[in-house]
Simulated scan of single mutants.
Amino acid sequence: MPNFNGVIDISHHNGNVNLAAAKTDGIVGVMQKATQGQTGVDPTYARNRRRAETAELLWGAYHFGTGSDGVRQAENFLGVVGDSKALLVLDLEPNPTGPSMSLEEARAFVTHVHDKTGHFPGLYSGHYIKQLLGTKTDPILAKCWFWLAQYGPTPVVPPNWRSWTMWQYTDGAFGPDPHDVRGIGRCDRDMFNGDLGKLTAFWAAETS
């Protein structure tokens, strides 16, 4: 089954995006940064959500984890996302502006999201989760579907997951082509492990 290359992830760093134009370039799903830490909110989240809804694109939201109380971070995230049918994700990577989220804080975050929504969020990570876990496994984080960040030609999944669900293969500069998207320019692009039908079924199941 071929993998489907039709998802992007964006934040305020991408500026003023045209999601209607992105749709004409084959994009069907948008993951947008919603929050960071216990109080941070991405200023483009609400605007881009409206634009995605107008363009009839699948919508997702991610939280950038920091080294602080995981439950409070989850409350910040859920408060911004609200009751929208968004695909939810925890972004677990090194924090360039302060302490990075620990495994314990990540477990608290994903467990609280599950308690409130009935779904474990996806876990986005690359070398950081491989560094934290090594060859070990984590039964709580294993309940999350895995979104791999890796800009090489072949995805390498940590032992904690059998496979990747999404793969961020480029940040718009490094990694395999294509790098850009109409209406946005160079950006993070993501492969889904399956065809378009499987993608839409997965999105529906995780947001119901």
Rank of each mutant, 00 (worst) to 15 (best):
L88A: 04
Q38V: 14
A20N: 06
D42C: 07
N76C: 11
T54I: 14
K33V: 14
I10D: 00
I27K: 03
G29H: 03
P94Y: 09
G26S: 09
N95I: 07
V71A: 05
A52E: 01
R50M: 07
L58W: 05
G15W: 14
T97F: 11
N76P: 02
G82D: 09
G67R: 14
R51F: 05
F64E: 01
V28E: 09
E75D: 12
V81Q: 02
T44F: 05
T54W: 05
F64G: 00
P99W: 02
V28M: 04
R50V: 13
V89P: 00
L88E: 02
R51W: 01
G70T: 05
E75N: 12
V71I: 15
G15E: 12
S100D: 01
D91N: 07
D91I: 06
E75L: 14
F64C: 09
T66D: 02
T39F: 06
R72D: 02
A55P: 02
K23Q: 14
H13L: 11
R47E: 04
F77L: 14
A34M: 11
A22M: 10
L19K: 05
S68D: 09
G26R: 13
E75S: 11
L87Y: 01
V41C: 03
M101P: 00
T54Q: 14
P99M: 08
S11Q: 13
Y62M: 10
N14C: 10
A74N: 01
G65V: 05
